[in-house]
Design a protein around this nucleic acid. Sequence first.
DNA 1: CGCCGGGTTGAGGGATCTCAAACCCAGTGG
DNA 2: CCACTGGGTTTGAGATCCCTCAACCCGGCG
Lengths: 258, 258
Amino acid sequence: MSSIPAVKTSRPDDKKMDEETGRVPPLACQNCSLGHFALYGPTRDATPGEIYTRRRGVLKIAPQKTFLREGEVMSQIFTLYSGWAFSFKQMPDGRRQILSFLIPGDAIMLENLYFPNFALPFSVKSLTAVAVCVFKLEDMILLTKASGAQARQLAATMHYNVACMNRRLVDMGRRSALGRVAQLILELEERLRGRGLSKEGRFHFPVRQEDIADALGLTTVYINRTLDRLRRLNVIAFDRQWMTVRDIPALRIIAEEE
Amino acid sequence: MSSIPAVKTSRPDDKKMDEETGRVPPLACQNCSLGHFALYGPTRDATPGEIYTRRRGVLKIAPQKTFLREGEVMSQIFTLYSGWAFSFKQMPDGRRQILSFLIPGDAIMLENLYFPNFALPFSVKSLTAVAVCVFKLEDMILLTKASGAQARQLAATMHYNVACMNRRLVDMGRRSALGRVAQLILELEERLRGRGLSKEGRFHFPVRQEDIADALGLTTVYINRTLDRLRRLNVIAFDRQWMTVRDIPALRIIAEEE
DNA sequence: CGCCGGGTTGAGGGATCTCAAACCCAGTGG
DNA sequence: CCACTGGGTTTGAGATCCCTCAACCCGGCG
C-alpha cells in the first residue's frame, strides 16, 4: 500500500506560480530548467521527449508534511521539482536524526533504482510546499540500463551521496558545533549553486534551527548560539529564511579546522 | 599507481596457519568456508570453479598497516579472507573518523563495482594480520551482470551497508556514549554471527579502545569508562581482545534507550 | 630488568544540554 | 488600528556529559 497522501496530482500544463520560489511548477520536461541536473539528465539532453512521456504525474505537497514513511515499499521514484524536504529517522522516544536535505533536482530514493522492492530506510518530510515529479521505478531502471551515459550519471550521483554521508559522519564524530554548521552551509551552498539556486552566496534556506540541530546532532538552542557566532564573525548573514555567505574562504577555514 | 604495499602474494595451496584465528589461509575458493557469504556467494554456490579461476592472488598484510589510501583509483576489488580491518578518514590535523569495521567475508570497496574508476573515498587499515583475496574489478563486474541472483546479492549487501551507515549517523547524532557502544557491539556480534565467527555471543575483538573511540566520535578515556560501565552492568565481558555478550536483551535495551 | 603499547584511574575544565522566560514578527480577528 | 496568538528565535543560568591532561598499572618482549 502506497502512503502517498491524497493530494491532487496536476497535469504538466498547470501553470500556477509557486509562491515561495516564483517558479512555474511542472511544465513539460523538455523545458524543465532542472532536468539537466536530474538523474535522467543525459537522456533528457539527448532525447528530451523520452522523459516527459515517462512521467506519471506531479505531486503537490503542503509544507511540513511527512509524505514518505520508513518501511514502505515503493514502485515509484520521485524527483524533487521545487521546494525543500529532508529525509530522517525517527526514534520511538521522539529523538530524530535528519539524514540529508533535499533540494530541487534531487532524486528521492535514488537507491531504489539499484534495489527495487527494498523498504525505505527513512522517512521524508517537506519543509516548504513541494512539487515532485513521479516516475515508475521500472521505467527509470530500463532508462538507466539503456544508455551508458545514463548509468554513469546515476553512479556519479550515488557516489556523491555516499561522499556526503561520509563527510557528515566525520562532522558528527570529530567536529565542533561551529565546524559542523559551517560544513553544512558550504555543502548546501555548493549543491544549490550547482543548480542555479544560489546567487553570489545568497539562497533561500527554509530550514528551522530545530532542523539544523537534528541534522547535526545538536540542540536548537546551541544551533542558535552557533549561528550567532558565525554572524558575529561576519562570515554569514541569515535572516528570515535567507542565507548569505559573506566570506566563503573564511567559512571554509572554519569548516576545516573546527 | 597502485598503493598495495610490497607483500608476498601466496598461491592458494599455501597452508600455513593463521596465528590469530587458527584458520588455514586462502585455499581453493571451492572449499572456502566464507565464500558462501561473500559478495559472489550465489555464483560460487552454483558454479564453484568460476570464482577460483578469477581470483588474481591473495595478499597478506601485517597488523596495523594502512594498505589502501584515500584518493587512489583501483582496478581491483578485495575480499577480506581473514583478520580485521577498518575504513577511515584522516583529517589534516590528526583527527580520525572510522567509517566501518571490516570482518572476514566483507568486500572492501564494494561500491567500486558500480563506480569503477572512482577514487577511493577513504583509507583502509588492518587491525590484525589480514589476508585478502584479490579480483580484477572488470571480472567481478561481468560476473555481477551475468546472473540475477548475483546482482541481487550485491544490491542487498550495499543496502545493508547503507543501512549501517544511517544507523551510525543516528548513533552519533542522537545517542549517548553508552548507547553508541552498545549499538556497535550488537552490530558486530550480529555480523560476526552471520559468518559463524561468534559463538554464543563470544568473539574475537581485536579493536583498541582508541579505535572504538574514533569510530563512535568519543575519546579513548571515555570509551574505557563506558566499557567499564557495561561490564559492571554485567551485560558484557571484554578482556584481552575477546568480547562476550552476556545479556543480549539488556544490551539491546541500552542500545535503544541511551 | 626495563621498556613499550595499551588499559585504567583521578581531577579539573569546557562544550553542549536543559529548562525556562522573553522576544519578535507575521497572521488573524475584532 | 490594535490586541491577541502562535511558531520560531533569542537569551540567561545552571547542570551534565564528555574531554584533557597526567599519572599509574599491567602483560609481553627483547
